[in-house]
Amino acid sequence: MPKIYFRPERCDGCRACELACIEKHSQTQSIFMANLEKPSPQSRIRVSQSANQFAAVVCQQCLQAMCVEACMTGAMQYSESGAVIHDAKQCVGCWMCVMVCPFGAVIPLAEAKKAGKCNLCEEEKLPACVLACTRKALWYCTGEEYEIKAAGELECAT
């Protein structure tokens, strides 16, 4: 299953991924109108900074996901393809998943009283954030592909 990988050394903190994610999760699907919507769309990916290091936080599709284990209604579950998916219809907005996620990748949607998370833009060919990332710090690929790609990227001699 492909997922989103974040390569920290490539990120310069531009936040293009966040904006692209907001557009994708907006009603209007418009980058200009999105912020005027109610309820206002929230990004599923967030960039944080510590010293001059940036880190993008997005759902890691854990193999043994704490959010799935914590969910009392079964809204958080594993899809057949292997992703961690969230069914908003079953979500009661208890936000246990928000609390247990070690990355803070599950977003409390305050206005909708539901949890929200990255769904890998399943209906698109590529996730919007990955497309938006000009420095190619976000990769969308399978684990095997990642290993091949990453070997070519190693800066250190190893």
Partner: peptide
């Protein structure tokens, strides 16, 4: 290990690998 693979992406040497 919960398989989040974050160790893999932060290692500058490509030392941790996805199994």
């Amino acid at each position: 290990c919960i398989g989040c693979q974050v160790c893999v992406t932060v290692c500058p040497y490509g030392g941790a690998k996805i199994m």
